[in-house]
Write a protein that binds this DNA or RNA. Structure first.
Ligand SMILES: [Zn+2]
Ligand SMILES: [Zn+2]
Ligand SMILES: [Zn+2]
Ligand SMILES: [Zn+2]
Lengths: 154, 154
DNA sequence: CCTTGTTTTGTTATGTTATAACATTACCCA
DNA sequence: TGGGTAATGTTATAACATAACAAAACAAGG
């Protein structure tokens, strides 16, 4: 292919940012591409090490956390709070708005699979919220821990 | 009432531990009662401060983390990974096994409401897991951020 | 252009959360 | 009552995250 998947997603991400009136600076783009190339989830400090090795040897933690906060805010990346890790959203190029996302985290190999929360579950959750008058602020993320199919077999 | 709610739950918790063949030691019981009396979610270090003030002035972080790990393992407490907080399970005395739990976390007042995950959502999740062959290891916790009914009004 | 307010980045320092490692004590059971 | 296991004590440090302020880059109106 002429255009790599990474480039393709970066372009899409850049467009989304323009549409939102926010800036996809070079630094933010570099962090995003590190996440895309690794594929799996990584901690902020792992990403920082790569960023230093590759782009800016004297970078400090705030640099990475700022970039990550931005990308998470824009829905381009996710933070997995149960493992203190970050990863690129796996659904940037497809459109389905995030109304809820499920992450299947393999505790053995460290892999993550991202899937949209199914419709009925979202509706049911909304009903629960309505009953108690709770007003949601961020997209709900469900982090499910276990073994992926490969690791479960072994 | 002759027996306080805290005592009642502590007794129930003690029974559950006996049934599981694990020990509800005085230290663990003390931590549990601190959580029950506070009611809301607290960080490990907040609990440690209270524990030092009330039970053991020279206690160190591992003491608290060990007790918390135990209580979470036994299903007597929960860890909210999105806020690094711990709280007593709100469903110790009722029986319904935890197949999934939803926490509504108010970002304004800090309050938390715990509800069992509704049936259809659990089934749907199980279906997703079956499709990809993922084997679950811990009860899934969904941490939903927003505003509780009181805070949403103001 | 220039200047002025805003956003982003740089930099230092520190705060917060959690665990490793090993010593000691308590507990259980044969 | 000895010997193994589980729990606790203790010191040190690792891992995760942010406060605070300075400097630079950017955008937009004059
Ligand atoms: Zn996503
Ligand atoms: Zn795996
Ligand atoms: Zn519970
Ligand atoms: Zn509230």
């Amino acid at each position: 292919m002429a255009v790599s998947r990474t480039e393709q997603i970066l372009n899409s991400a850049e467009q989304q940012c323009r549409k939102q009136g926010v800036r996809m600076t070079p630094q933010r783009k570099q962090v995003m591409s590190l996440m895309l190339e690794q594929g799996g989830p990584q901690t902020a400090y792992q990403l920082l090490d790569q960023f230093k090795a590759r782009y800016q040897s004297n970078a400090q933690p705030p640099t990475m956390y700022r970039a990550l906060d931005f990308l998470v805010q824009q829905g381009l990346a996710h933070r997995l709070s149960s493992t203190n890790q970050y990863l690129a959203c796996d659904h940037i190029t497809c459109q389905h708005g995030h109304r809820g996302t499920v992450f299947l985290l393999c505790d053995q190999c460290g892999g993550v699979q991202e899937t949209p929360m199914a419709g009925a579950a979202v509706d049911e959750l909304q009903q629960t919220l309505d009953e108690v008058g709770f007003v949601i602020q961020r997209e709900p993320l469900l982090e499910v821990h276990g073994r992926c199919v490969d690791c479960a077999a072994s």
